[in-house]
Design a binder for these strands. Sequence first.
RNA 1: GCCCUCUUAGCUCAGCGGAUAGAGCAUCGGCCUCCGGAGCCGUGUGCGCAGGUUCGAGUCCUGCAGAGGGCGCCA
Length: 535
Amino acid sequence: MALGKRLGRNPRDVAAEILEAVDLTGVARDVEVAGPGFLNVTLEATFLADLAGETWADERLGLEPDAASQRLVIDYSAPNVAKEMHVGHLRSTVIGDALARIHRRLGHEVVPENHVGDWGTPFGMLIEHLVDVGEDAAVAELSVGDLNRFYQDARASFDASDGFKERARERVVRLQAGDAETVRLWRVLVDQSAAYFQVVYDRLGVLLTPDDIVGESFYNDALPGVVDDLRALGLLTLDDGAECVFPPGFTGRDGSPQPMIVRNRNGGYGYAATDLATIRHRVDDTHADRILYVVGAPQRDHLAMVFAVARLAGWLPDGVTAEHVQFGNVLGADGKMFKTRSGASVRLVDLLDEAVARAEAAISERNPDLVGDERAAVARAVGIGAVKYADLASDRVKDYVFDFDRMLAFEGSTGPYLQYAHARIRSIFRRGEVDPAALDVGAVVVGEPQERALVLALLGFPAAVRHAAETSHPHRLCGYLFDLAQTFTSFYEACPVLRADDEATRAGRLVLCDLTARTLSAGLDLLGIEAPERM
RNA sequence: GCCCUCUUAGCUCAGCGGAUAGAGCAUCGGCCUCCGGAGCCGUGUGCGCAGGUUCGAGUCCUGCAGAGGGCGCCA
């Protein structure tokens, strides 16, 4: 029909001509023109069976790397030094991790960058607080992850004492001047925080490592150059004492041009300057072909302006794309921003602990045979998987409601449902004492409608992954996996496997079972979710 | 005031310009001595409102309403 439009002809006539011209012997049993110009193709059972066999024999499950390998910088997670990781960091971390895995799988070189907040005026206050409580005590506090308390105590001192306030101000100046002792103390905060972040990342099962941290401070030395070069390009305007760029097309209050302040009237550099320096670094030094910013929706205007200015300045050439992979808020049951009852932000580790505890309770009840370390490991996989899947499964642009009961349900589009579907298939092989490796490529037979439906679903894996990658929408992959699991369940209901009527049928169905399990496992892995063998 | 995002079934959500808009949960009704019932099959209800573009609009455009967010020296 798209072709008909391009040719300016009746879609049905075009379809009929195509039907005449193609020879689908061995591929399709039947092709017919339908509706406004669809071609309904009924594939030959043997053709489908062969494809299923080939896919089963393929390590990559039919998913070929993209023709042209790109270098992608993915900017995600970005917690703040000496501040607790909370639900606000969940989405960026989980979505960024999934995108990193997906693009790697497609053969691209992924450079994860964790743009942690390790610079700015709060560090005067934080360092003075560090001095007050003593280095050892501070390290002890930070290393156990009590970042909230550290930050809040510092804040309290700052608010309560003018003397402290003054010390904090002076400390910022010394930090910016590169005073050795101050920088050393700052480094203590950064290192302790990084160690804590890693504990959270490991628990969450994301691939980020300390090596991926490229904090704001990394760009300090590049900031004067950003301003100088903008000035040399004639893009800089002095406005009310601040050095600004006014990119065309951006308006603020009252429809007046919207400034992007790169340097404030006190000579300090804003985060816009840092973001521009970051782009230059990613293009000039990292040689990125594509840059993804996995950052919340509120930053939309800011990032659009940064990209626009970077284009104006020529720092973001035509061949390089910068995309804002925006996402909505995590909401509580009341439909408002997810907070604790007292109104504080929820610590990410607390959230994960509760998910794992709930998962363990559910597993203990349902499968009492699972005990000890294995039960703990499965509970971790299920609890964390539930949280991650819930975050990835709906369109990231929208807000979603955080609900333990729903995300940990074994019914519906949830992590546990998919993990269970996988474990259940694996159990077929244990029960039947069948080694999947010993199966035969040519065994698949497509007879029953449920077998046909399952094979068609299995063959859709590569397209689902590609689609998720192209649009930076992991929820497309979630939807695919859920559909696959449901299709499998219908198949399994209608088609006996271990008790199949004859050996040939049994062998063919076992191949489909194994292929399904591997596809589910691979798909979950691309989402950063484990697929336990039993649960 | 300007700008952005969102609004699909009772609830939570899919839906990529194409056919009669789909899932899950909940409801109701069936099935199966079932290889893990955490199942299968069926059942009813819906695109916020009004225009426009198109052979064709939940999808694109405009306006309106509601919700959330952003808009000069924090990041």
